[in-house]
């Protein structure tokens, strides 16, 4: 099982951007969603998640707002900004190329 710290540098950022691109989401839900979507392979703990969220917010790729959650509690919801969307497109394309290249090498050897 892959631990978050083993994620390729910058990959967590891309995953977060990808998740919040679907809909505004709070931190816990983002972590849950990453776990679900990766079929329990990727588990992101709060120690990695929140610093990443705060860094992305400072970079201006996501923004945060306080909303009432499904459990009727105030929670901080993160959503993608316009420049975040652009960054996500770029990052995804980069990732595609990188993973294709790695797969290529791994298969041929």
């Amino acid at each position: 099982m892959s631990k978050p710290t083993d994620l390729v540098q910058g990959t967590l950022d891309m995953l977060i951007l990808k998740i919040v691109a679907l809909e505004p989401m709070h931190g816990w839900a983002i972590a849950q969603r990453i776990r679900q979507m990766s079929g329990d392979v990727l588990q992101v703990g709060q120690s990695a998640l929140y610093p990443a969220l705060h860094k992305l917010e400072r970079q201006g790729w996501i923004k945060s707002e306080w909303h009432t959650s499904e459990t009727n509690r105030r929670a901080r919801y993160y959503s993608l900004t316009r420049s975040g969307r652009k960054a996500l497109t770029e990052e995804s394309a980069n990732w595609e190329r990188l993973s294709a290249a790695i797969s290529c090498i791994v298969r041929t050897i």
Partner: peptide, 9 residues
Amino acid sequence: SKEECRDAR
């Protein structure tokens, strides 16, 4: 983690 968040900001 909080400390890291502060740094991240």
